[in-house]
Amino acid sequence: MSSVNLRTTSSFSLKPESRLDVMIRTFRLSAWLGWQIESNWADPFLFAIYSLIKPLAGAAILVVMYSVITRGDFDSPIFPYIYLGNAFYMYVGQVMTGISWAVIDDREHYKTLRYVYVSPIHYPTYLLGRGVARFLIASISVVVTILFGILFLRLQIDLAAVNWGLLLIALIVGVNMLAMMGLILASVMLLLVHHMWGIGDAVASALYLFSGAIFPLEVLPDFLRPIGYIMPLTYWLELMRRAMVGEVAMAFPTLAGYSNGQLMGILIGMTVAFALLSGVIFRFCERRAKERGLFDIVTNY
């Protein structure tokens, strides 16, 4: 009887999975793992507070800076520009660095990278799945930050006038773009030993500065402005602002000459380019990491 059971179980577990099945299973399980790692160190209430305080404080710094200088002129179009740009930028820090941080976490902290890598999963998909928890946390932070702005800071958003379709599509494309950037960063992390702690923050800070997240690109010196135009984030943030506050966002000259369709086309094109690039870079870094024995290295956490 038990022998029959064993045979049944064996034949069941040995059933070959398609590549797509492996990827779906990997993504689902790594998303669950990521959520557990992010959230289970505290009770849900404490975790909720923790997840909200940091982004709200970050937004509050800008709000205080703005209100000190303008004496609380929240009706000016620059205010929603700064506030929304900062709110949506939370996705960048969380999704992009979240995916890349999985390499450090597994290799240096939990010391499980080698086991994860040799398990029957699709490793790039595993890394992308680890970003899901951060995406969820960021989404809650973004919603709460925007609601806070509407309720307490006279942030001029007419919910009936919001272009929800554009918002949803731009969000989906943008998050995919961030995930691809995160995968590139994670691939590079596989090769880094000493510099890994700062690289994610360095990239996020550079993007924050050059993508016009919290100020129009016209404020940057002329020689720095082109950097902003080659970053997909610039177009993504513009689309997100246009979806939320329409004409207010279009009043700024940076990308005023582009229609929503053109901006979306640029964003999709750049996302595809980053997806292809991430595949190439991942394979290169993976091979180099194997050659140099970096998968199981611990540089003393």
Binding site: I69, L209, F215
Partner: peptide, 8 residues
């Protein structure tokens, strides 16, 4: 640059 944008 935020301060510059709001002419502080």
């Amino acid at each position: 640059f935020v301060y510059r944008a709001i002419q502080a």
